[in-house]
């Protein structure tokens, strides 16, 4: 299988603390993969490492063969990895619509001078971006909130808006950081359907970091389990469910 994302024996240390050690991961095209582990296992650190927020101390990361080490987060997004955040990070002073339009900045063909001359090319592109943003919002049923300040949205909608915003960067791979956090069982059910839908509709790979076992086991085809920064298991949900190491990590002795 040709890997879309390949993490090759990455280690990351903060001072004396090894947060993640010798981490290997390989995700294929159109694959939906889960990354689980107890609190403080290093899941978010892996995310931050892939997206360039932290640089791995050792090891390499590739996206379709392109090395990602040393790139800034915005470079990595440009290569096709988009993400959401565990603690929602929307652009608080912008409307729902503008949050999504802001993410189109990446593939923009006009620059500051076009913005000042406001020629036909600029107007056409702006109209096009507006239409695309609306289409995305419609898919996620957020179009009715178009002109609402995003901080005034209900919590669940804020989470979904973050996903919409990430999709607006036209990624090949979407990283979701605990999207189910703070949701009730009904909402979680809806979220599971939504993630599967996104994967198919946009034809992308998804890496899901999640705390909630039911969500991960329900939709992921393959799961990585981290504990104290070390991968303790990897495989399909059924195998993971029965793996004694995983049970021990979650339930203790």
């Amino acid at each position: 299988m040709d890997a879309l994302l390949k993490v090759d024996r990455c280690t990351i240390r903060f001072g004396g603390l090894t947060a993640v050690s010798n981490f290997d991961m390989s995700i294929g095209n159109r694959e939906l993969v889960g990354l689980i582990g107890p609190n403080g296992a290093g899941k978010t650190t892996v995310f931050n490492m892939i997206t360039g927020v932290y640089q791995p101390t050792e090891g390499q990361i590739f996206l379709s063969g392109d090395r990602l080490n040393g790139l800034k987060p915005f470079n990595i997004t440009a290569k096709g990895i988009a993400r959401t955040f565990q603690n929602i990070r929307l652009f608080a002073s912008l409307t729902v619509f503008d949050n999504v339009r802001a993410a189109f900045n990446l593939h923009l063909k006009h620059g500051p001078l076009h913005a000042l001359t406001r020629g036909p090319k600029f107007k056409r592109e702006e109209a096009d971006i507006g239409a695309q943003a609306m289409d995305l919002l419609k898919i996620f049923n957020l179009d009715r909130f178009r002109d609402v300040m995003c901080k005034n949205l209900p919590y669940g909608d804020q989470r979904r808006l973050e996903i919409v915003r990430a999709l607006a960067t036209k990624p090949r791979m979407l990283l979701l950081d605990e999207p189910a956090a703070g949701m009730n069982p009904t909402e979680k059910g809806a979220l599971m359907t939504l993630i599967e839908f996104i994967q198919e509709k946009f034809d992308i790979s998804v890496l899901l970091v999640e705390h909630d076992m039911r969500v991960v086991m329900g939709i992921c085809k393959r799961i990585y389990v981290l504990d104290y920064g070390i991968t303790i298991a990897e495989g399909p949900p059924d195998e993971i469910r029965r793996n004694p190491k995983v049970i021990q990590a979650y339930l203790g002795e």
Partner: peptide, 17 residues
């Protein structure tokens, strides 16, 4: 709009490319 995203949240702005 890039200017405004920098003001609101630099980390998120970088993540949006």
């Amino acid at each position: 709009r890039g200017f405004l995203t920098v003001r609101d949240d630099e980390v998120a702005a970088e993540a949006m490319g």
